[in-house]
């Protein structure tokens, strides 16, 4: 602490100091939470707004090892932990939310290919770019009644909400990347006897692929937001459905673990995309 210099750009905090600085905010957050929880529990031992460790543990146990309230499944007394987990509330919700999420992710692939064409083929660019630019500014949530008419209120309206919500942004982003591919590369490919397909898919697409994956990584959170919005509006299962239901009676003991679980899942997807990117594209220099 001899040279305390937070506003010095050229400062060089040692390893120990920077490590402890990086955990400082976490510690403060947890500390504030605990302090609030303790003071609220002193006043009201059953407080649910800021559950204490015991309540949280009970909430986690209920989410992970007990079936959802609406399910008929009753675990046998000797059911294994795996068996219980497999029928648990969090498992069920994760599976149904995850399915929606990954179907939307799959549906983004055609959007990315369209973006490739918009960026590369003048006819596609002329036909689509302005429309996508316009469509990108539409707030997807405000279209919900229309989505309900077209897709019903089941799975497809939620998936459509995600896709309509993030696809225009991704299309614009990817078509910009495609346009940023140096003209030299495209000309060069044509001089090597490549045809249009080769240039589009084997030269340009391969080159922008790592950036496309990075763009997807940035859009994971918007996707999750749209998924949550959809599930909170109409659903009978899913992570956000559970959070919405739990809020009806202030089940923060279940909501908080769910929120952390969602954060962890997003982190995991992001990490795996990053690792995949590094493995698949060793040549990529960000």
């Amino acid at each position: 602490m001899a040279n305390f210099s937070p506003f010095d750009i050229q400062a060089r905090p040692n390893r120990l100091l920077s490590q402890s600085l990086s955990v400082l905010l976490f510690v403060i957050c947890i500390g504030l939470y605990m302090q609030t929880s303790i003071s609220r529990h002193r006043e009201n031992s059953e407080d649910r707004v800021v559950p204490n460790a015991r309540q949280l543990a009970a909430g986690i146990h209920a989410s992970v090892f007990e079936p959802a309230e609406e399910d008929d499944y009753i675990p046998a007394d000797n059911a294994s932990r795996w068996e219980r987990l497999h029928h648990s509330m969090i498992w069920k919700d994760t599976v149904s939310s995850g399915r929606r999420f990954f179907i939307s992710l799959l549906l983004l692939i055609p959007a990315i290919l369209l973006a490739l064409h918009i960026g590369l083929f003048p006819w596609f660019g002329a036909g689509f770019l302005r429309f996508v630019l316009f469509f990108d500014k539409i707030v997807a949530l405000s279209l919900l009644p229309i989505l309900f008419i077209v897709f019903g209120i089941d799975e497809w309206s939620k998936i459509a909400l995600i896709v309509i919500g993030v696809a225009p942004t991704i299309i614009l982003d990817v078509s910009q990347m495609v346009r940023a591919v140096p003209q030299e590369q495209i000309v060069k490919a044509f001089t090597l006897d490549a045809n249009n397909f080769d240039v589009a898919y084997r030269v340009v697409f391969r080159q922008v692929m790592p950036q496309v994956i990075n763009s997807l990584r940035l859009n994971l959170k918007p996707m999750m937001l749209f998924l949550f919005a959809g599930e909170m509006i109409a659903a009978s299962d899913g992570l956000a459905y559970r959070i919405a239901i739990m809020r009806r009676h202030m089940g923060m003991d279940v909501i908080l673990p769910y929120v952390l679980w969602v954060a962890f899942l997003l982190f995991l997807i992001d990490l795996s995309l990053r690792v995949l990117n590094r493995r698949m594209h060793p040549w990529f220099q960000s």
Partner: peptide, 29 residues
């Protein structure tokens, strides 16, 4: 088209291909 070969100042090679793949690309396509 392939009547002319082309060597620009920059971006002359495909960054996502190894040297060998870069060389083989023309004849292969």
């Amino acid at each position: 088209d392939s009547r002319c070969g082309y060597v620009p100042q920059k971006y002359s090679l495909f960054p996502d291909r190894t040297v060998l793949e870069n060389l083989a690309m023309g004849p292969e396509t």
